[in-house]
Amino acid sequence: MRGQWNIILGLLVAIIIAIFAVINVDAVRVNYLFGVAEWPLILVILGSVFMGAIVAGALGMVKIYRLQAELKKLKTLKGHQEAAATSKHDVDTVDGDENTVINDTTLDQDPK
């Protein structure tokens, strides 16, 4: 349901931006570092929105990749700890003590 509201909100914002751009069709002067040009304001507005979306999307992707890498690292760490706990439990079982409790506090620590 949350995804549907995000889509509806995104479409609403896109419609508002499109209406705003369409009513501003006058030519404006755009100064570049290497020159000056006249562009319709609608293209300046839509280009600015498009570039802002690209920057925001790129920053979001970087955050997603970082979180995925951290998740992978934590899963690997958990797998190693479970393997160590299993081998410790196997050794305790061989000794005849099946009621051994393994106290592992490494998961409670901050990974950073």
Rank of each mutant, 00 (worst) to 15 (best):
A85R: 14
L46Y: 11
T86L: 02
S48P: 06
I8E: 13
F34S: 06
L67W: 08
I45K: 04
I17E: 00
Y32M: 09
F50M: 06
Q4A: 13
Q68R: 09
A27E: 05
V55M: 01
L59I: 09
K88Y: 12
Q4Y: 03
N103V: 09
L77D: 15
L74D: 13
L107C: 07
W39D: 00
T86H: 09
V22D: 04
A21S: 09
S48D: 07
N31D: 14
R66T: 05
I15R: 02
E82I: 12
G52Y: 02
L59N: 13
Q68D: 09
E82T: 11
Y65K: 15
N31L: 10
V101D: 01
I17K: 10
T93I: 02
I15E: 10
I16K: 05
V49E: 13
R29C: 05
M51L: 11
A21L: 07
K63E: 10
V101L: 11
A56V: 10
V22E: 11
N103I: 10
E70G: 06
R29V: 14
A83C: 00
E70H: 01
N31G: 04
V30W: 06
L107P: 04
T76N: 08
D97T: 03
L11C: 14
A14G: 00
E70W: 02
N6S: 07
E82C: 07
G57F: 04
L107Y: 03
T76A: 05
D92W: 13
A58L: 02
G96Q: 15
I54H: 06
L46G: 04
V101M: 12
M1L: 07
G47N: 07
A69Q: 13
Q109S: 15
D90H: 06
A14V: 04
A56S: 11
G60D: 06
M61R: 05
G96D: 01
D108Q: 12
G10Q: 11
I15G: 05
I42G: 11
T76K: 03
Q81D: 07
W5N: 13
K63H: 03
N103H: 11
K75L: 03
I7T: 08
A58E: 08
I42N: 09
L74I: 02
Y65L: 14
N103A: 14
Y65Q: 15
K72S: 03
D108N: 08
L12P: 01
T106W: 11
L107R: 10
Q109I: 15
D95T: 12
Q68T: 00
I7M: 10
S87K: 14
I64C: 08
V28N: 03
V22K: 14
I45M: 13
G47E: 06
A69F: 02
V13K: 08
I102Y: 13
G3I: 06
K75H: 00
R29H: 05
L12Y: 02
F50L: 07
L12S: 13
G96R: 07
P111E: 00
L41S: 10
Y32N: 10
M1G: 08
A18T: 07
A21Q: 03
R2D: 08
N31Y: 11
V101T: 02
N24C: 04
I102N: 11
T93F: 12
I7S: 06
K73D: 09
H80W: 11
V44P: 01
L11M: 06
L59M: 06
